[in-house]
Design a protein around this nucleic acid. Structure first.
Length: 989
RNA sequence: GCUGAAGUGGUGGAACUGGUAGACACGCAGGACUUAAAAUCCUGUGCCCUCAACAGGCGUGCGGGUUCGAUUCCCGCCUUCAGUACCA
């Protein structure tokens, strides 16, 4: 029989499901291997065409590892809480659980027909109460923990309470809020329960914190940064304002250093690690306090108690050694003290500057890096090392969110400060004797000895930094400090479709539910909108109170909650007594290979590492890092096709329309004047005549040329299917085409159709650009095995590329050719038991090695080519020998599992998933001759067969003795001969 | 601006450690089969010069360098894509 992919694929997909062929064993003598994909959000649009790319790669790897004798865990599930379902619910009133279920079913059907070897018995869904029970449980562990900087790990809150009881707060070294109290054990004993809870909250790893959010009053909801455009909501265009709100936060900053250090221990792409490093943003420096000289300021009248008691501005600097070169200080315009620190005389200027800053979007600020702007507050501050008074400015190059929102300006050492000082006429002080040309630009050198620098004069960089840090600390005006850019992560959404936070409030303080009360189920509500008073949707749930009287937390968890631990649930997905049993976690430990997109670099992948480290600190898991090896799959872009239309217009009415092929359109585009256009119209038999060929003449005639997106599904290899195009829309039913060769086709004309070539552009994949290709269509046409191999054939996995089905035919032909190896002319299955020849064995062992090497380095595209070469060779050798083909089936199986399983069974075997990968034997590849490329002065001229046993001297003689070589030398005497055994001979003349 | 990745025929791409650039596939052209088309099979296909063969020249974004030899290593520049934070 010919290759019947539909039948074969359905047959084996059913067999695998019925036999649970890919179920991972709970415990096994085999070594474990855990292959994980980033699970999808089940959107209504179905499986995105980019998704299968990574899934196919991981599936090949998983199948390969099974053949190599590993106990493989390869699961799949759904990140099923999320905004789109909620948005749909708001519009239709349909419960998000219902639409989510429908979408999941679509995904499952699509995944199944690609033939993935997932262990579906371990499927997880983040929106399933049996799953989110454990997400809530982890939240409770975080609430019940604090970060002890002495042991450098998270500990139960009870150890902190113990410390408070024994020694008070003085010796506690913790990652905590800034406003913790200092107290003695005797004080702690007198605290009321509320006071204790309030204090403990400042230490917990998840805690309530006032944060600024994008509040949209019209929508009654909080928006993410990317939902806000220029101060208006992206959806609807309503005004958005900054609003302070109590929000749950996660103290991820406690783990900043470990998150950074851990990167050196994992096998991830370097760009990915770099992104996380930059995100964490460690800088080593010092914090320094500049006293406010308030002799001319009426600060005493300020409401701001912090400002009144502190009366200094703290800056963070990475170059504390340049402190004697400070000639001004700058605050971010958004800094909370700006109003109080502005003198009446400067008030107008400062307010105008702030107003101007607010108008600029963040993008504007970035693009405009060269313009210098700022405003003087009128206030002076005192440099703690020199006692000098310097001016306090505000400027938008200082960001409120980083460090303390205040910067010291050192114009001689920092180019940005130099520009600022030059622009506003502030002094530029040289501080190192090696600084050059500082009247031209800043010189950030650390070389040389300090000058104009008081007590560090004459010192060098290292000495000065150490000395200053110590001095500042002794004087109580500063200290060495490490700063991280990363901030604590907000952990709450004012939305419905997410995990409820297992917390209730008593007297304004949060308390956890009891563990046995989990899961806290999402209550039913009438509408998925905020309440009239602006409470989150959960505020609508009637009678939803803890023990009937206490208010529950009304926000839900953010999208990343459920995905920050899911790989553990797969280890033991059905467990009701724990997020996963200790046995399961001890056995599977961590993910050996994780494949997914790089867009998750600073979100999911960072949060997951954070939770993993936390779970390890509490002894629930084994490994410090969850994902040992990570591979990024490239983004799949859309590849749009265009048709070109000429509209001939007379008196504002279209009198003729032609769709012209790409080449003709380009000719038209080049036509310089009406005469040339008229020539083309005549050439293409378009009945339209300009009454005048003068460009500027009064003319009510016009030929309008333009391009239109055309659905890529009716285009093959950039050639338009004209019939399908006419059928696609009523207004195209009588479309007239002019083909690439200039011939015309009209719907009534009939006859032979020429080639209509479409234009091409790479764009984002989207419905509106008609460039979305559904995997279902390709599977129906070519089968899953072809789709799998074609997606790999497209190019390196990690590279982004446009989706393009132009070459899929070649892969399909390959599979048919492969099938043919096992069949005779009449398509009858025929294999021989004859002894294989040397050439056949060589072909086989070449591919065994090649594929093995390729898979280990994730180069799937190159193995597809190699398979084609192997099958071409064996076809040429007319090889139908079992001894060769049986091993070839196993090698190809991870890529094209259905056809291989069928052939495997036709060969009389059972269950390809339990087969063994063939052992590579290098002896079959040993050659005794090699066709050496002979080059002269590095230019390849000819090949010459030489025995591989020849050493340099003999080879040189043999080469020079050759007549053809002498012909190329043309009498010239070789100066030197380079001989690389098995590689090349190069004659230098 | 900064960071990262990439630039090779008409197209996707290959060349793994500095050693025959363009494997494999698509497309295109020609041929076989067919009444015809589709499918299939065969041959050719980087560019230039040449009627053609032989031979030759040029060729991996651009300009230099190292080397017997560079797509690969070094320096400078250009373009595209992604990320981003004027980060003190």
């Amino acid at each position: 029989m010919d290759y019947q992919f539909r039948e074969i694929e359905q047959k084996w997909q059913k067999y695998w499901a019925d036999n649970q062929s890919f179920k991972a064993q709970a415990n096994s003598d085999k070594p474990k291997y855990y292959v994980l994909d980033m699970f999808p959000y089940p959107s209504g649009a179905g499986l995105h065409v980019g998704h299968p790319l990574g899934y196919i790669a991981s599936d090949i790897f998983a199948r390969y590892k099974r053949l190599k004798g590993f106990n493989v865990l390869h699961p799949m599930g759904y990140d099923s809480f999320g905004l789109p379902a909620e948005q749909y619910a708001i519009q239709t009133g349909q419960h998000p659980a219902v639409t989510t279920e429908t979408n999941i079913n679509t995904y499952r059907r699509q995944l199944d027909q690609i033939g993935f070897s997932f262990d579906w018995s371990r499927e997880v869904r983040t929106s399933d109460p049996a799953y989110y029970k454990w997400t809530q449980w982890i939240f409770m562990q975080l609430f019940n923990s604090w970060y002890n900087l002495e042991t450098d790990k998270a500990e139960p809150i009870s150890t902190l309470i113990h410390k408070f009881n024994e020694a008070g707060s003085a010796d506690v070294k913790a990652a905590c809020d800034e406003d913790t109290k200092t107290f003695l054990p005797t004080d702690w004993a007198t605290f009321t329960e509320e006071e204790k809870q309030e204090e403990l909250l400042k230490y917990r790893l998840t805690y309530l914190k006032e944060s600024t959010v994008n509040w949209c009053p019209a929508l009654g909801t909080v928006l993410a940064n990317d939902e806000v455009k220029d101060g208006f909501s992206e959806r609807g265009g309503f005004p958005v304002e900054q609003k302070k709100m109590m929000q749950w936060s996660m103290r991820i900053t406690a783990y900043a250093e470990r998150l950074l250090q851990g990167l050196d221990t994992i096998d991830w792409p370097e760009p990915m690690k770099e992104m996380q490093r930059n995100w964490i943003g460690k800088s080593v420096g010092a914090s320094v306090k500049f006293a406010i000289d308030n002799s001319q300021l009426a600060i005493d009248g300020t409401e701001n108690s912090k400002l009144r008691t502190e009366n200094y501005i703290e800056v963070f600097t990475t170059r504390v050694d340049t402190i004697f070169g400070v000639s001004y200080l700058v605050l971010a315009p958004e800094h909370e003290w700006v109003a109080e620190l502005t003198t009446p005389a400067q008030k107008e200027e400062v307010e105008a500057y702030i107003a101007q800053t607010k108008k600029k979007s963040e993008l504007d600020r970035m693009a405009d890096a060269k313009t210098v702007s700022g405003a003087f507050t009128g206030t002076y501050v005192v440099n703690p090392v020199s006692g000098e008074r310097v001016q306090l400015w505000i400027a938008d190059y200082v960001l409120a969110g980083y460090g303390t929102g205040a910067v010291m300006g050192v114009p001689s050492g920092d180019q940005r400060d130099w520009l600022f000082a030059t622009h506003f006429g502030l002094p530029i002080i040289q501080i190192l004797d090696s600084q050059k040309d500082i009247d031209q630009q800043a010189d950030p050198t650390k070389e040389g000895k300090y000058i104009n620098s008081g007590f560090i004069n004459g010192m060098e960089y290292k000495e000065a930094v150490a000395f200053l840090n110590q001095w500042l600390e002794e004087q109580g005006v500063g200290k060495a400090k490490i700063n991280y850019r990363q901030r604590d992560a907000i952990f709450g959404r004012q939305r419905y479709w997410g995990e409820p936070i297992p917390v209730y409030f008593k007297d304004g303080l949060p308390y956890l539910l009891k563990e046995e009360e989990l899961p806290l189920l999402l209550p039913e509500i009438d509408k998925y909108l905020p309440t009239e008073t602006g409470e989150p949707p959960l505020g609508r749930a009637e009678g939803w109170k803890y023990e009937g009287k206490y208010e529950y937390e009304l926000s839900t968890m953010p999208g990343w909650a459920g995905s920050s631990w899911y790989w553990y649930r797969y280890m033991d997905a059905q467990n009701n007594g724990a997020f996963a049993s200790k046995d399961a976690v001890d056995y599977w430990k961590d993910v050996d290979l994780y494949i997914g997109g790089s867009e998750h670099a600073t979100g999911h992948l960072l949060y997951s590492r954070f939770w993993n480290k936390f779970l390890k600190d509490l002894g629930f898991v084994q490994e410090e890092e969850p994902f040992k090896k990570l591979i990024n799959q490239g983004m799949i872009q859309g590849r749009s096709n265009f048709v070109y239309r000429l509209n001939c217009i007379e008196d504002g009415k279209i009198v003729q329309t032609r769709f012209v092929s790409k080449g003709l359109y380009e000719q038209w585009d080049k036509a310089a004047n009406l005469q040339e256009q008229q020539n083309l119209l005549n050439k293409w038999d378009i009945p339209f005549k300009y009454s005048s060929l003068e460009f500027l003449a009064e003319n009510n005639q016009l030929v309008q040329a333009g391009s239109l997106h055309v659905d890529v599904n009716i285009v093959e290899n950039d050639r338009l299917n004209v019939q399908k195009f006419r059928a696609s829309r009523p207004e195209y039913s009588d479309a007239v085409f002019i083909f690439e060769d200039g011939t015309t086709s009209s719907p009534t004309g009939g006859g032979q159709e020429g080639a209509y070539i479409c234009g091409v552009e790479v764009e984002k994949m989207s419905k509106s650009k008609f460039n979305v290709v559904n995997p279902d269509v390709l599977i129906a046409q070519y089968g899953a095995d072809t789709l799998r191999m074609y997606e790999m054939f497209l190019g390196p996995l990690e590279q982004s590329k446009p989706w393009n089905t132009n070459g899929i035919e070649g892969v399909f032909k390959f599979l048919r050719k492969f099938w043919r190896l096992f069949h005779n002319e009449a398509w009858e299955f025929t294999v021989s038991d004859a002894e294989p020849t040397k050439a056949e064995l060589k072909s086989l062992h070449k591919i065994i090695k090649k594929v093995q090497d390729d898979i280990e380095r994730f180069s799937f595209n190159t193995s597809v080519s190699s398979f084609m070469i192997a099958v071409n060779e064996l076809t040429d050798l007319k090889c139908n020998k079992r001894a060769i083909l049986q091993d070839l089936v196993v090698v190809l199986a991870p890529y094209a599992p259905h056809i291989c399983e069928e052939l495997w069974s036709l060969l009389g075997n059972k269950d390809l998933s339990t087969a063994q990968y063939p052992i590579f034997n290098p002896n079959y590849l040993v050659e005794d001759e090699f066709a050496y490329p002979i080059s002269i002065n590095g230019k390849m001229k000819m090949n010459l067969n030489l025995s591989l046993t020849l050493e340099a001297k003999e080879a040189e003689e043999a080469v020079l003795a050759n007549e053809q070589v002498q012909g190329f030398l043309n009498g010239a005497a070789p100066k030197k001969i380079i001989f690389v055994k098995g590689k090349i001979v190069n004659i230098v003349v």
